[in-house]
Computed example of a mutant assay.
Amino acid sequence: MSNQTSLHVADLPQNAPTPFELRPTGEVLEAIKHELGLLGLRKLSFVGELRAKGKRDWTLTGKLGATVIQPCVVTLEPVTTRIDTPVTRVFLADWNDPDEPEFEIPEDDETEPLGTDIDPALIMIEALSLALPQYPRKDGAELEQAGFTEAGKQAMTDEDVKPFAGLAGLRDALKKGE
């Protein structure tokens, strides 16, 4: 898939934007759905442009749209979500890869090293993956309280594990005793 949409940086015009429009269908759409572990994927589109930024860097801007179907985290029933999100990537010729092991990249970092090619299809799949709801939930679906313990013992409840749950009762008892 990436070879069909990959843009060779050396061939891109410096003085005009290079537009792109991706609307995968059929096997490609099915492959993306499978790769991202979705129950369904419809109306996937990624439309935008690639433009020179200075003499050696490039900026890709676009709009990602898709309708995704994921299993509900509570009931496993299908949950449909519409995704419409802007996407920006800045490709830097002088990319500095941090070599400290503890270095954290900010969540909103849009910069990447500039290679010989820029592939809008790979960026589309990455952006879709990042835009997916992490915990899709069907309207009204709630977790029931469940208790698990050894036979003959009282199961611990959600209230039991809240560290300050008993303090409110103790505080009230102390106030009454004053």
Results as ranks from 00 to 15, higher is better:
residue 166 G to S: 14
residue 139 D to G: 05
residue 79 V to Q: 14
residue 111 T to H: 02
residue 33 K to T: 05
residue 27 E to T: 14
residue 176 K to A: 11
residue 11 D to L: 10
residue 124 M to Q: 06
residue 161 V to F: 06
residue 92 L to D: 03
residue 139 D to L: 08
residue 30 E to P: 09
residue 159 E to T: 12
residue 73 V to K: 07
residue 83 I to A: 04
residue 42 R to C: 08
residue 53 K to I: 04
residue 93 A to V: 01
residue 87 V to S: 02
residue 125 I to M: 06
residue 154 Q to A: 10
residue 113 P to K: 04
residue 137 R to Q: 13
residue 165 A to S: 14
residue 58 W to Y: 06
residue 50 L to K: 06
residue 90 V to K: 02
residue 178 E to P: 04
residue 149 T to G: 13
residue 141 A to E: 04
residue 177 G to A: 15
residue 160 D to H: 14
residue 7 L to R: 00
residue 161 V to N: 11
residue 48 G to E: 03
residue 60 L to A: 06
residue 44 L to R: 06
residue 125 I to D: 02
residue 31 A to K: 12
residue 103 F to D: 08
residue 48 G to M: 09
residue 128 L to C: 08
residue 44 L to P: 13
residue 86 P to C: 01
residue 145 Q to P: 08
residue 120 P to M: 02
residue 86 P to T: 05
residue 24 P to Q: 01
residue 137 R to S: 05
residue 104 E to R: 06
residue 22 L to C: 08
residue 26 G to D: 00
residue 12 L to Q: 07
residue 2 S to T: 12
residue 41 L to N: 07
residue 79 V to R: 15
residue 100 E to C: 04
residue 128 L to H: 09
residue 33 K to C: 09
residue 33 K to E: 11
residue 120 P to F: 07
residue 102 E to Q: 08
residue 92 L to C: 06
residue 94 D to K: 12
residue 83 I to M: 08
residue 47 V to D: 12
residue 34 H to D: 11
residue 33 K to H: 09
residue 11 D to T: 10
residue 94 D to M: 05
residue 44 L to F: 13
residue 24 P to L: 00
residue 119 D to K: 01
residue 175 K to N: 14
residue 160 D to L: 04
residue 176 K to I: 01
residue 77 E to R: 15
residue 155 A to D: 10
residue 87 V to D: 01
residue 134 Q to S: 10
residue 153 K to G: 01
residue 151 A to N: 12
residue 50 L to W: 10
residue 69 I to M: 15
residue 77 E to P: 02
residue 125 I to C: 02
residue 85 T to E: 15
residue 11 D to G: 10
residue 26 G to W: 03
residue 86 P to W: 02
residue 88 T to H: 12
residue 9 V to A: 02
residue 29 L to Q: 06
residue 125 I to S: 02
residue 24 P to E: 01
residue 12 L to G: 05
residue 91 F to H: 03
residue 92 L to N: 05
residue 152 G to F: 12
residue 107 E to P: 08
residue 144 E to S: 13
residue 177 G to H: 15
residue 51 R to F: 02
residue 23 R to V: 05
residue 158 D to P: 04
residue 105 I to W: 02
residue 114 L to Q: 01
residue 97 D to N: 08
residue 144 E to N: 07
residue 107 E to K: 06
residue 117 D to F: 05
residue 124 M to K: 03
residue 89 R to Q: 11
residue 147 G to P: 00
residue 51 R to P: 05
residue 12 L to I: 03
residue 94 D to L: 07
residue 123 I to Q: 03
residue 145 Q to A: 13
residue 13 P to S: 03
residue 68 V to H: 14
residue 28 V to T: 12
residue 108 D to H: 11
residue 126 E to R: 08
residue 149 T to H: 12
residue 66 A to R: 12
residue 175 K to P: 15
residue 94 D to P: 15
residue 10 A to K: 14
